[in-house]
Structure formats: structure tokens, C-alpha cells
Amino acid sequence: MLSLNRVTKQYGSFTALEQIDLEFSRGVYALLAPNGAGKTTLIKMLSTLIFPTKGEILWNGDDIIGLDAAYRDMIGYLPQDFGYYRNHTPREFLRYMAAVKCLKRDRGARRADELIDLVGLSDVRNKKMRKFSGGMIQRVGIAQAMLNDPQILILDEPTAGLDPKERVRFRNLISSLSKDRIVILSTHIVSDIETIASSVILLKDRRLLTQDSPAAICGTLDGNVYETDDIEAIKAPHLVLTERQENGRTVTRFASERDCASAARVVNPNLEDVFLYVYRDEER
């Protein structure tokens, strides 16, 4: 089990994260927060790229910094801006990364080939990555993260910049990889999370707001999310969440703590509603 005990990260006088307590066991954990909320800072601390200013991160009770290589041997990490060698083929690059992950040469070569097949890059395994699409590069990225068959897979914004088809493919891939390991992914694309995350972590104001299942988190807004095609009729304080066109009319989805059932239809909240509600501008 991976746990964070009162972890704080400061850069000089600026506090990026404060007093974070979290626990991870098997499953997919989604870090959901707007840009700049500290997702990448948390991810980098879990990857040992940066170190907590206060508090500790423990793997089965041992400090991950003390575990050093033993801990890093258990993780697979895909950074936000995944760097790769443009002149390498996926096979060359994965073999190199296998060496960096201290895999034996034979095993590294075998894993590289297996993962190339797994992520669907068999046809281009010997092609230089120079002209690969964003989706293909991300697949190479996930393959390199999986090389050491990690117990903890850490993915920083893995679907950013991917088209819908690539995103679905990627989600399925992550889902299949999460059966016997911890997968921690940071994202601000809520549709990624709804389908695959077993637990969602919300960060707000540099602190942990909540950690729960997507259903439970959606449940916090049960009975408070409505839809109407006449938003002007809603006099109670409310927050407009989304708008869509339906039969030539604008259907507005909103949240209100007052009962608006007489003027609008109550709907089931989704994660996007929660996201918009939690991180709303305080204008109304």
C-alpha cells in the first residue's frame, strides 16, 4: 500500500501542496483538479522527482526516499510532456529504457516486443519515431512505463492532446493494466475518469478536498443538479454548469442548493457537474 502522511511541498514561500493524506491500494486513482492545482507536483513526488518539504510518502510502511531504487523499480512513470528520441525506433527506445530500468538485456528485449504488441505499434516497431502521431507517442510512453511491470503506474495527463478514438483506446489500455496494480493518473478530462477510475482525488486550494469513488463523489450533488430550457425562470441562486442544443432550444444544466424542482427537471449528477461545481468561480 502506498500512503501519503501529511505531505507538504513548498517552493520558497509558495506552498504548492499542503498536508496531504492519501492511501492507494490496487485500482485506478484519478487526480482531478484544475490546471495549477498541484496535480503534477503530487505526481512528481510519487515519482521521486521532487521531495516533500514536510511529511512522508510510504510504501508498505517504508519511506520511498529511503527505499530509493527498490521503490523506483516498482513504479512506471509517464510524464506530462513525454520526452523521447526522435531518431530512435520504438524498439530501440524501449530497449534503452529497459536498460535504464535495470532490466536484464534479454528480458528487456522481450518486454519491449511484448509491449509494442500490447500498445498496438507492431507495424511501426522499426520505424523512427520522428513522424509518429501524438497518440502513437503516448502509446510508446505507456509502454516504457510498463517495461518493468510496475506495481504502481503513474501517468501525468496521459490523454492530453489525444483524439477521441485514441483516448478511448488509451482508457481501455489503462483499464486492462490496472487489474493487479495501482494506477495513479492525473487529468482534468473528467470523461477519462468516469469510465475507469475506482477512486477520484479532488485537490482544492493546495489541499485534499476529497477522495472517494466516482459514484460517491457524484452523490454529493444528488438532488442539486437540474436541467431546464428556460433558465430565466429560475430565480433561486444557481450555478450554470453546461448548455446544449435540443430540438432548437437551449437546455441549461445547473446546480442549486435550493429546491428548483418546480421549474426544472432533476437529473443525475456526473463528475463533470461536480468538477464545475467544486471549482466554480464565486460570482453568484
Binding site: 510524464p79 528520441y85 529504457m97
Partner: peptide, 19 residues
Amino acid sequence: DRMRRIYLLHYSSAAGRRM
């Protein structure tokens, strides 16, 4: 490596900062 941020992969691997 620094320009392409490959050092992030290095540092988070088993080899770590020894790289």
C-alpha cells in the same frame, strides 16, 4: 536529454539519479 525532459524518465526509473 534535458531539452526533451528525458531525465524525468531516468530519475523515476530504477537507475534513478545515478543516471
